[in-house]
Design a protein around this nucleic acid. Structure first.
Lengths: 263, 263
DNA sequence: ATTCTAATGAGTCAATATGACACAATAGTA
DNA sequence: TACTATTGTGTCATATTGACTCATTAGAAT
C-alpha cells in the first residue's frame, strides 16, 4: 500500500509506480497491524485509499537492500511519527488471491501509466505481517501517498477491508492474545506511568473476558516487574489509585526464571 | 535450495536455473526445519549440497501461482515421501545478507550458465521458515537436485550450516518450545500408539530439563486427550507400560476450554 | 465541616494444581 | 523362585487460583 521512503527512491508517486520494481523486492510486502488503546477500547490504525474507496492496513514494500524488519519499522515510523515502538513479526500471508486489482489498476489508469496485467504492482504479493503496540495519545496518524486519511478504528467495529486485511488483523489479535499470556507486553499500549486498572482493561479486552480485580492485581504484582509510584490524582470522586511503571531490569530477570509457564 | 516440482516446470536442473524466474516468485523461498525423534534424541533433516560441500535445510521456491503453504508442504513431501504431516509456519527471515553466493555461483559455472551477479538465484532471498514434526521411522529421506544426501542430524551436534540456517533452526526450536507449552503437539513425533515415557522424553528434550515421571503422567492424563490402550510387550525385563494414542475429538474439545493457560 | 459515593488496597479462605517422594505390581532374567 | 528394572498409582506439603469481604479514601453533595 505504502510508498517507501528508502534512500535513492524518487518521491513522486508516478515515478515510484513506474520504477519501483527496480528499488524494491518483487512480490513481497509488509503490513502493519498497529494497536492502540483508548477509552477502554482496542483500536487499529487504518488508511482510507484514495482511489479504491476502501480501508486497508498501513503497509509498504521492502527495499532491495533493506532488511525486512527495517521495512516494517519504516512503515510504522512513517504512519505514526514515532520511533522505537514495540513491533513484532507474527505471520506471513501467501495465498494466491493476494493481489490488488481494483485499487492499483485504478491508480495506474488515473496516472496514465500502463495498466496492463503485467505491471509489477498488479502481481500477486506475499506479505509479512507485523503487529505493533503503541501509546495511543502519542501517535500522529499520517496517511501515505495512496490514501487520504489515517485514523483509528475500534477493533470490534471495523469497516470493510481491502483483500485479506481482515484476516490479517484477526491473526494479529490471536497472536497478541497468545503472547500476552506469557509475556506482559500490554504496558506498551500505555503511558510510562499507569494505574493497574488500565492494564487490567487491556488484558480483559484482548482476552475477551472479565478478570477479577483483586486477583489480577495480585498476579501482576507477583511477577515483580512493576515499580509502584506515588499516588495519582484522578479527579474521580473515590480513592486514588497507585501508579505503576514497567521495570525492564526486573522484567528480564523474571523472564529467565520463566514467566507464567506450565511445566 | 530445492528444485521445485510445480506443474509445467522443466525437470532439468539447468533448465530450472535458466528459466526459474519465470515460474517462481522472485527473491522468496521457503525452508523447512523437519524434526524427528529417535533414540531419545531430537533430530533435524539436512541436505548435503553437491557443490558447496555444506549442509543446509530442505527448501524451495514458491510457484508463481502456488500458495505459500502449499510450497512448504510440497518441499516436505518431496524430502520425506510423506503427506499430511504437521507443518507450521513460524518466522520469516529477511536479513539482507541472505544470499547464497558460494554454492549457487559454483553450480552455475559448472553448468556453463551465466554466473553474473544478476542471475536470479544469486539475488538476496527472503525465506519463510516452517517447522514440521514427523514420525522418524516413516521418513524416507530424499536429496534434491542440488544435494547428494539427505540425512538426520542430532540437534545438539549439528555440522556447519549454510548461510543463516543455524539461526533458522534455533528459532524453530524456540517456537516449538513455546507451542509445546500450550498445545500438546509432541505426539506428532511418535507412532500412533506410544508409551507415556516416549512422550515425556520429547518434552524433556524440547524443554531441556528433566520432568518428574509421575507428575508428567498425571498432567497428560488430566488433559483428557489420550486414549489408553492395551499393554505393550517391550521385551524389557520389567513391568510393561500402557500404550496411549492421541484422540483428536477429545483434543479439540479440550482446546475450547483452554488448554494450559494462565488467567 | 460532615456525610455520601464510588473505587481502591489489602486480606481471607476454600478449591485446585504442583512438586517431591513412596510403594506395591510385574515382565523378563538369573 | 528370587532378582532387577521400570511401571501405575498414591500421599502430602506447598503454591496458585478464584470468589469474595472489608476498611480506606478522594472528591462531590449537603
Amino acid at each position: 500500500m505504502a510508498k517507501g521512503k528508502t534512500p535513492a527512491v524518487s518521491t513522486s508517486l508516478k515515478e515510484f509506480l513506474r520504477t519501483g520494481h527496480r528499488h524494491f523486492l518483487r512480490s513481497l510486502s509488509v503490513d502493519n497491524v498497529i494497536f492502540g488503546f483508548h477509552e477502554n477500547q482496542l483500536k487499529v490504525l487504518l488508511l482510507h485509499t484514495t482511489f479504491g474507496n476502501q480501508w486497508g492496513l498501513p503497509g509498504g514494500f521492502v527495499g532491495i537492500d533493506e532488511p525486512l524488519d527495517k521495512a516494517a519499522a519504516r512503515v510504522l515510523r512513517d504512519r505514526t511519527g514515532l520511533n522505537d515502538l514495540y513491533l513484532q513479526q507474527f505471520h506471513t500471508f501467501g495465498q494466491t488471491e493476494r493481489r490488488d486489482n481494483k485499487v492499483l489498476s485504478k491508480v495506474l489508469k488515473d496516472l496514465n501509466l500502463n495498466p496492463g496485467k503485467d505491471h509489477w504492482t498488479l502481481q500477486r504479493f506475499v506479505t509479512v505481517g507485523y503487529f505493533a503496540l503503541v501509546e495511543y495519545a502519542k501517535v500522529n496518524p499520517q496517511p501515505d501517498d495512496l490514501s487520504t486519511t489515517c485514523t483509528w478504528h475500534d477493533l470490534d467495529n471495523l469497516p470493510t477491508l481491502l483483500m485479506d486485511h481482515g484476516d490479517i488483523i484477526n491473526k494479529a489479535l490471536e497472536e497478541l492474545r497468545i503472547r500476552l499470556k506469557y509475556q506482559p507486553i500490554g504496558y506498551n499500549l500505555l503511558p510510562r506511568e499507569f494505574p493497574m486498572k488500565d492494564l487490567q482493561s487491556i488484558y480483559e479486552t484482548v482476552l475477551g473476558r472479565k478478570l477479577d480485580r483483586a486477583n489480577f492485581n495480585r498476579k501482576m504484582v507477583g511477577y515483580d516487574i512493576l515499580d509502584k509510584k506515588k499516588k495519582l490524582f484522578t479527579g474521580g470522586s473515590h480513592k486514588a489509585p497507585y501508579l505503576y511503571s514497567f521495570n525492564k531490569k526486573k522484567y528480564f530477570k523474571a523472564l529467565e526464571n520463566g514467566l507464567g509457564s506450565d511445566f
